[in-house]
Design a protein around this nucleic acid. Structure first.
Length: 415
RNA sequence: GCGGGUGUAGCUCAGUUGGUUAGAGCGCCUGAUUGUGGUUCAGGAGGUCGUGGGUUCGAUCCCCAUCACUCGCCCCA
């Protein structure tokens, strides 16, 4: 071992961090189940094609951010950069078209080879949901409502804003793309170098450029809404109305363009201004062509993903750790007896701390440090009368109670 | 991938205009209290000054490289 630092962009999750993550995960999972979304897990790596063919040849994820390896068998595999492609692949692999609608919740690590910064790591963690097999906009409403509900439960509605846009169906998008390309080509000399590249690869992305020069050009660009056909218009209108009916406030953002090629119709992001350059906290959209494009039956889908690190940074403090009861032997002769007592109380369902070494004073100190609410002190004097000392560590009061009453006493006082 | 900043004890940070034993607070350990924690007092442990090279009689300090973190760009969760 020459280098004991973790690989760039990866982090250890020590218990305090892990508790915060778990709070996010558990909250998200609990709320998802209220909506009938059950957890499923797909492998954290897939054949490279699963991502390369679905995310789009021009997306940054595919062109520069994938962790791709060759296996001993000579096959190319990639650590998943996002969750939807894997779920879609699993949908096809397992013949889940027989069971639509599929409502999936997932959580786990994702990997992108990017420059780390605040709210961005190379290995990070996401929670996400996918609703597969429903054509109508009610699915979009349901999925956004679920995301909204989770943010509410985490106390994040005040620090986030829901932005929403329509990318239209294929017909609308093709038409708009042609008009938009013409427009930007006629202003090509005013565009930044980045945007001139985008003009070839994905002109829609010029719309959300941060470059000042680009913004001036964008200000005069044609409006996507004007090019939505009747179906696309009706679709997004229904989504807007549905959210309004549910009391979910949102802002329309015609510049919102998601980076992955598979999105259509509804695109949305819950954004924040509290994470430096990163604004998206929970984001997703509809991907009607994805499953067919992967070789499965034509099946619509809609979903979102959220970064657990980002949510954990924004969330209010997670619930405190449970407070244990400590079992403390007064002398070495009673260590074994104390451990037996600890064990039997655990069998009764109590959270018992039992430290392994040290004299009584040290053990009490450690009990205090573990935030124990009480200590059961085993000493020869009391044991002669079949009693133990029960000390409340908050009040400092203690009393000898009989061994046979320990469980009942703890039940009433500390549970 | 590109640009800026930072890197001294477990944590948060001083410091040295280049000079011999590098400091503080918090935390940790021991004792005052051989059957009682949280307060107090006394003592103690802990540092290749990110790493490698260079300049110098001498480098933690200056120079170069490198790694990591961080902020921004790109993009995204």
């Amino acid at each position: 071992m020459t280098n004991l630092q973790p690989v760039r962009g990866t982090h250890d999750l020590l218990p305090d961090d892990r508790r915060r993550h778990r709070h996010v995960e558990n909250t998200a999972q609990k709320i998802s189940e209220l909506y009938g979304f059950d957890e499923m897990t797909t492998p954290i790596f897939e054949f490279t094609d699963v991502f390369a063919r679905t995310l789009g040849d021009t997306s940054d994820i595919v062109t520069k951010e994938m962790y791709t390896f060759e296996t001993k068998g000579g096959e190319s595999v990639t650590l998943r950069p996002e969750g939807t492609a894997g779920v879609a692949r699993a949908f096809i692999s397992n013949g889940l078209a027989q069971h639509v609608p599929v409502k999936a919740f997932y959580k786990g690590p994702m990997f992108r080879h990017e420059r780390p910064q605040k709210g961005r790591q190379r290995q990070f963690h996401q929670i996400g949901v996918e609703l597969i097999g429903v054509e109508g906009p009610q699915a979009d409403i349901e999925v956004i409502a679920l995301g909204h509900h989770i943010l509410k439960e985490l106390g994040l509605l005040k620090s986030t804003v829901l932005e929403i846009n329509s990318l239209g169906d294929v017909e609308s998008r093709t038409a708009f793309r042609a008009v938009l390309t013409d427009y930007f080509q006629s202003h090509e000399s005013d565009l930044s170098e980045d945007s001139r590249n985008r003009l070839v690869k994905n002109p829609l992305r010029i719309l959300d450029s941060k470059d000042d020069g680009d913004r001036k050009v964008v200000a005069g660009a044609p409006d996507f809404a004007a090019y939505l056909n009747d179906d696309s218009k009706a679709f997004i209108d229904t989504v807007h109305q549905g959210l309004t009916d549910l009391g979910i406030s949102f802002e329309r953002n015609p510049k919102l363009v998601r980076g992955l090629d598979y999105y259509c119709h509804t695109a949305f992001e819950f954004t924040t201004s509290e994470l430096g350059a990163q604004s998206a906290v929970l984001a997703g959209g509809r991907y009607d062509g994805l499953i067919e494009q992967m070789g499965g039956p034509s099946t619509p889908g809609v979903g979102w993903a959220a970064g657990i690190e980002r949510l954990a940074m924004l969330a209010e403090d997670s619930p405190a750790k449970d407070r244990p009861i400590s079992v403390v032997p007064v002398s070495p002769d009673l260590f074994a007896r104390a451990q037996e007592m600890a064990q039997s109380l655990r069998n009764e369902g109590f959270f018992i701390e039992f430290s392994f070494t040290g004299n009584m004073k040290r053990r009490l100190k450690r009990a205090d440090k573990s935030n124990a609410r009480a200590a059961l002190i085993l000493g020869e004097d009391e044991l002669k009368d079949d009693k133990v000392m029960l000390r409340d560590l908050d009040s400092g009061e203690q009393e000898a109670i009989s061994l046979s009453a320990v469980v009942a006493t703890l039940q009433t006082k500390y549970r």
